[in-house]
């Protein structure tokens, strides 16, 4: 049952990315390109995607929080560490450089795989290698490993 649910969640998530246009790297880059504002080439769509997504998630999480446990699970799996340390900045900084370079982040990368483009496949393989590398490095530092494997 939970596998069917996860599939449907992925499906809805994917529809959202496709409808919002975020599966198109050019549209993402046209948002990130703030220097294009004066010329009228800036595409603010991503801001509204974030607004819609955060708005619905915020409202929905308020309802979910009233429950003791999820409908189909034993407990809520929330990120364990809430401390602000250097990794909180370093990881996202590295992620942002890659995102700004290609205009692809993990969700749209998988959605775009369905287009059958070899370039996207290349990106996804590189992304998975990057993920494996980060987990390997973290495994050598036990304090980090526990944070990454929850």
């Amino acid at each position: 049952m939970i596998i069917v649910i996860q599939f449907v969640v992925g499906l809805v998530f994917g529809f959202g990315l496709l409808l919002s246009g975020m599966s198109n790297p050019e549209k993402v880059l046209n948002f990130l390109d703030l220097a294009a504002i004066p010329s009228g080439g800036w595409d603010p769509s991503l801001l509204l995607v974030m607004a819609g997504a955060v708005g619905v998630t915020f409202a929905g999480f308020q309802l979910v929080r009233r429950r003791q446990r999820p409908v189909l699970g034993e407990r809520f799996h929330l990120p364990p560490s809430q401390t602000l340390d250097w990794r909180i900045a370093a990881g996202p900084a590295i992620f942002g450089i890659g995102w700004g370079l290609a205009g692809i982040c993990p969700g749209p990368a998988f959605v775009a795989l369905g287009y059958g483009s070899p370039a996207i496949l290349l990106f996804v393989i590189a992304m998975m290698v990057g993920m494996a590398a980060a987990r390997r490095v973290a495994d050598r530092q036990p304090s980090l490993a526990s944070a990454l494997t929850e």
Binding site: P79, S81, R87, I88, A90, G91, P92, A93, I94, F95, G96, I97, G98, W99, L101, A102, I104, C105, P106, G107, A109, A119, L122, F123, V124, I125, A126, M127, M128, V129, G130, M131, A132, A133, A134, R135, V137, A138, A147, L148
Partner: peptide, 18 residues
């Protein structure tokens, strides 16, 4: 594209999210 993928993957895991 490969460089971007490596950075996105490494950074997302290192920063615990995307």
């Amino acid at each position: 594209l490969i460089v971007a993928g490596l950075l996105v993957g490494f950074g997302a895991v290192w920063g615990n999210g995307c």
